[in-house]
């Protein structure tokens, strides 16, 4: 269960504070995959990160007893001068995986990422594709109740993409996803609950279809709507 209680978040802009959402209350029951949609800059990623405990709201709380992952495929935490293996071992360490089970996870990451001997080379020598593969391999090798996915469900070439999709389909049996995406098929396929972040704040729907409908309805509209409102 993930509960949002009185969540308010705003951003500083040159023209004053822009409120993304205000006093949001919601309860997401266990076993629901959540899709977040909205236009660029609406605060989708911010909401995702707040739910994941990485960012913080201005006021309010996120209450959960679930184990929530870091944003999937994130490579920002890598230390360039350390090897892929050392970086992976560090991530294992902060998640309490040491010794024998760490070695198993590392083997799994190496096998999944398909970067071969580069696994023992410094991360700064990686191409961006290899970096993402390593990050993605790490994400799926540590078990969580909820995985955070920001935009990318898959990275790399066609072969690797296929592999990622398979793994995610497998994961969905035992874990849930919170997904931010602009691709409607992805959301339709993977999500149960929809959150729409619009100009009027945050709306939660029991099915992702409703959220998608509202989002798509909003696409050509904003200019006309504002004119209409002024009259």
């Amino acid at each position: 269960m993930i509960e949002l209680r009185n969540l308010t978040k705003s951003f500083k802009t040159p023209a004053g504070r822009k409120v993304l959402f205000r006093n949001v209350n919601a309860v997401f029951p266990e076993g629901k995959n959540i899709g977040i949609l909205g236009r660029n800059g609406a605060g989708k990623s911010t909401l995702l990160r707040i739910m994941g405990g990485i960012d913080y709201p201005d006021s309010g709380r996120v209450i959960t007893d679930q184990r929530i992952s870091w944003p999937m495929g994130l490579s920002g935490g890598f230390q360039g001068s350390m090897t892929g293996r050392e970086n992976a071992a560090f991530i294992c360490g902060i998640h309490g995986i040491w010794g024998g089970s760490k070695r198993k996870v590392l083997d799994r990451v190496q096998e999944f990422a398909e970067i071969g001997d580069y696994f023992d080379a410094p991360v700064k020598s990686y191409s961006s594709g290899m970096r993402s593969r390593l990050a993605f391999g790490l994400s799926i090798s540590v078990d969580f109740d909820y995985y955070l996915v920001d935009e990318v469900m898959s990275v790399g070439d066609a072969h690797f993409k296929h592999k990622c999709e398979q793994v995610i389909a497998e994961k969905r049996k035992s874990a849930n996803f919170i997904i931010v995406a602009h691709s409607m098929p992805t959301l339709k396929k993977n999500c149960d609950v929809g959150i729409y972040l619009g100009p009027s704040g945050l709306q939660i729907f029991d099915t992702v279809q409703e959220a998608i409908a509202l989002y798509q309805q909003g696409i050509p509209k904003p200019a006309q709507a504002s004119v209409g409102a002024q009259k």
């Binding site: 230390q79 001068s81 350390m82 050392e86 560090f90 294992c92 998640h95």
Partner: peptide, 17 residues
């Protein structure tokens, strides 16, 4: 766990290179 992992990381980055 976090302190232990970070210590290893700091040692590697500070002196490893």
């Amino acid at each position: 766990d976090v302190i232990r992992a970070l210590l290893i990381r700091e040692m590697k980055t500070r002196f490893g290179k």
